[in-house]
């Protein structure tokens, strides 16, 4: 088991390195010139070359990429150009290892950007996961038990309708009506636990989390229903009934346990994806999480931030996959090794 995890982590690191290279190459393959963008509207060709130099965009892509990797191991000093650093030592920013780069647009290291935005995305994700898991699985199981009845049809239909609404619609709807027009809750502004205590933190997460949860919940209702229905037809569920077990016990111990495996996969991957930022929801509520950071970085051609976020999200997905695979072994004795 231990060796297995180490092996998986090793492969994960190689994948991340490959991902960073692909992102570099794609970025420079695009027709947009990042130097021209950074230089602004009134830009002469000389000034543009100067900017390109200062940002280090004049070096070959592969050199920029190896510099980036070196920075992760050793740390880096910005700006890259030694002459510029010597000219204005008071403006030098030191970025200690592991350094993911320096965003000229935001005049911060990428590490700082992520450190600020990550708690916001993590909070929203955790709140949303708890909500959608609880309601999604509950409703899905209810629909499966009452298969074919009005309860089942109602739940499935409602899930389908919810699923069809895009998150910007649900988000804006909640913001406009629940918070602004009817004033049922305060207009959400992200509050850390340090600022507002647990209560303030939770209430600031309510609307964004509900927005996200609604979207995912719809899928989870249908998925849970399908998994439970499928495992209800298994021979071992019939065996459990033939023993004379109570219906609830058959459902919880035998049927649900089997439906757990595919659910765990979904949860792991969805949660990992969400931690990398919910772009639309964060933008609608103007929460400065990773999603909003990613959106802004893309509109301003902020390569260091983009790279940092791609690697962060990649790390989450890789870790989630490893954790999910380890959970399989916990759930299913057939997967256990050695």
């Amino acid at each position: 088991m231990y060796a297995y995890v180490v092996r998986r982590l090793f492969v994960g690191v190689i994948m991340l390195i490959a991902m960073s290279l692909v992102t570099f190459v794609l970025f420079f393959a695009s027709p947009i010139d990042p130097a021209r963008y950074a230089c602004g509207k009134n830009c002469s060709p000389e000034l543009r070359e100067q900017t390109r130099n200062a940002l280090g965009y004049d070096k070959p892509v592969i050199v920029q990429w190896t510099d980036f990797l070196k920075g992760i191991v050793q740390g880096r000093d910005y700006p890259d150009d030694p002459e510029l650093r010597a000219a204005a030592p008071e403006l030098v920013t030191h970025c200690p290892a592991p350094c993911f780069g320096y965003s000229v647009v935001n005049t911060k290291t990428v590490n700082e950007e992520i450190k600020e935005a990550f708690p916001v995305s993590l909070s929203i994700s955790v709140a949303a996961v708890v909500l959608w898991l609880f309601f999604g699985v509950l409703l899905g199981v209810m629909a499966a038990i009452r298969r074919g009845t009005i309860v089942d049809r109602g739940i499935v239909a409602a899930a389908l309708v919810l699923y069809a609404f895009p998150s910007f619609f649900i988000g804006l709807f909640l913001l406009k009506f629940i918070a602004i027009k009817w004033e049922l809750v305060d207009v959400p502004v992200y509050t850390t636990i340090a600022e507002g205590g647990i209560g303030g933190w939770l209430s600031s997460l309510l609307l964004p989390a509900v927005t996200l949860a609604m979207l995912y919940m719809a899928g989870y209702v249908r998925m849970t229903r399908a998994f439970v229905l499928e495992s209800m037809t298994e021979d071992y569920v019939r065996t459990a009934r033939a023993k004379g077990l109570r219906q609830n016990k058959v459902l919880v111990k035998h049927t649900m346990r089997a439906a757990l495996t595919p659910l765990v996969t979904l949860i792991g991957l969805d949660f990992a994806g969400l931690m990398g930022g919910a772009i639309i929801t964060e933008t609608v509520f103007n929460y400065n999480g990773l999603g909003k950071l990613a959106y802004d970085a893309n509109t301003t051609n902020d390569l260091p931030t983009i790279i940092g976020l791609v690697l962060l999200l990649g790390t989450f997905v890789i870790l989630a996959n490893i954790i999910v695979d380890m959970l399989y072994a916990v759930i299913d004795p057939r997967v256990r090794v050695g």
Partner: peptide, 14 residues
Amino acid sequence: AMIFQDPLSAMHPY
């Protein structure tokens, strides 16, 4: 009581 045909699928794998 009943004994089923395929004991691999008739017993819960978990």
